[in-house]
């Protein structure tokens, strides 16, 4: 048998003070209702999921519908339990969908010819511009035949010497609009002036590679 002294502390431990007893009494029903509501929401959501899986038409009671809507709403509402997951998922899909910009190549503008020209070249460029302007106005006799012959002869010598010495550059720049007819007439004239035949030109080109 146990003595009454020994039982006494047990009794005091079990019995609560009047204040704490009142608090627990007030909290208990609130907790119970919250748990009940959550359970009801879960049940409603499970019912809908089961119906969806079975492809049966979903028939819910009014209360079930309210719980289901609440469950859905809480699932996606900001700060809700699943909102973090949902936002992470949407960010992931958005990232996957966004097309990536891949730079395939960069093509720089053609380098401008800023080579410093000497005084004679500057004069030559200015003179050529004057000639072009006169030609554009239709002044075909802007340059006399003697002047043309002198210029052509000098240019032939300078260009030929440069080519032979290895300083190779095209005789016309890419931006000069000279027609094929112009070129053929001028080449023909030069060959004729030097008493050369076209086959001699071809033979010489194949030998020298110039």
């Amino acid at each position: 048998m146990s003595s009454p002294k020994a039982r006494a502390p047990k009794q005091t431990a079990k019995s609560a003070t009047p204040k704490s007893a009142a608090k627990t009494a007030a909290k208990a029903p609130a907790k119970k209702t919250a748990v009940k509501k959550a359970a009801a929401k879960k049940v409603a959501a499970k019912k809908v999921a089961a119906k969806r899986r079975s492809n049966e038409p979903v028939a819910l009671s009014g209360e079930d519908k309210v719980h289901f809507v609440k469950a859905i709403w809480e699932g996606v509402s900001k700060g809700g339990k699943d909102s973090g997951k949902a936002s992470a998922k949407s960010a992931k899909t958005a990232k996957a969908k966004a097309p990536q910009v891949e730079i395939l190549r960069r093509i720089p503008a053609a380098a401008p010819q800023n080579k410093k020209q000497n005084a004679l070249s500057q004069k030559g460029l200015a003179f050529a511009a004057e000639l072009e302007a006169a030609f554009a106005k239709g002044e075909l006799e802007a340059l006399s035949p003697e002047a043309t012959q002198a210029l052509m002869g000098a240019i032939c010598k300078i260009y030929g010497a440069n080519q032979e010495s290895g300083n190779k550059y095209p005789i016309l720049s890419g931006r000069m609009a000279v027609t094929g007819t112009d070129v053929m007439i001028t080449c023909g004239g030069l060959l004729k002036a030097a008493d050369l035949q076209v086959f001699e030109l071809g033979m010489w080109q194949s030998w020298t590679g110039i």
């Binding site: 891949e102 190549r105 720089p108 053609a110």
Partner: peptide, 12 residues
């Protein structure tokens, strides 16, 4: 980009 420059990109 300087004037006259080009860039080729692939988007999707």
């Amino acid at each position: 980009f300087k004037d006259g420059d080009r860039q080729i990109v692939r988007i999707g």
